[in-house]
Amino acid sequence: MKDPEPRRGPVPRKGAARRIVTTVLGAAATILAASFVIFAGLSAAPGDPVAQILGAKATDQARASMRQRLGLDDPFLERYWHWLTGALHGDFGVSFTSRQDVTALIGPRLATTFLLVAMAALLVVVVGVGLGVVGGVSARGRAVVSTLVGLGVAVPGFVAANALIGIFAVELGWFPTYGSGHGFGDRVWHLTLPAIALSIGYGAYVSQLTSAAVSEESEKEYVMTARGRGVPSGIVLRHHTLRNAAMPVLTASGLAVAGLVAGTVVVEQIFAVDGIGALLIRSISSKDYPVVTAVSLIIVTVFVLVTTVIDLIQTALDPRERAKA
């Protein structure tokens, strides 16, 4: 509590606060810009939403009143503003095809997608970092890990997904081939193969980076000195090597998680997981633009938020980054 002594260690600089503010403002600006691009792009997309909702047989009068209700005759910027302020309150309008509130459509699916991403993230961090440490520590491990990584990087998620279905769902029958399940346990079981398929590519990146960071650290002088003093290698690894290698690993893992969010678009489609990724593809096919706009914005926002948090953690943990500001 009492702190009469002057603080030791790195002096906090004014720059740090400024850097945090710039990072957060930058993220907000990126999301805002993305929202504009997405809205503008999809407004320009071909197809008449009124015909979409009312069908071809509607009278001109019905069409006109629907146009007015949807605000389609308003100037573009006014429509954007209207949509944006709605979105900030969690109101993304009404789906063209199901006539439901977009928010109600997205809500439960968002939970499914987050569970999928969480499971994949766990795999990326545990298996990816684990393999990376093995590869970074021993020469024999390195050969095995780098082969695995070379393969993992080269196998696209959708190919891996189909291979997993062929082997573990069709041949062995251990997992279901599709669906998202009911209840937590069943859901986890249904999402296991999708999570593995989703995690392979990013897991490979993370383990490659971990392996490089660990082997780089373990060749440094302080590690040699510790070993020379007779410190057991396990302790050197845990107390020195891994701690110093943690920064790039943390950053790569965070970026991988951000990538996983976007990756759900493909993987959910393959396993017919009823999340927002599959919803996005389905809505694109049926030209249900309010849903497409909302889901895209959510994915981009999560992506930007995750990368921003990593940026901030990096600034907070690494004194060199703090000093850079």
């Binding site: 999809l42 976007a262 990756g263």
Partner: peptide, 20 residues
């Protein structure tokens, strides 16, 4: 740096939504 952060497949998918 901003472009690096853009998820590729998502953009491709949206592009198909807009241009067909």
């Amino acid at each position: 740096n901003v472009m690096f952060a853009v998820p590729g497949v998502l953009v491709a998918v949206l592009s198909s939504a807009v241009f067909g």
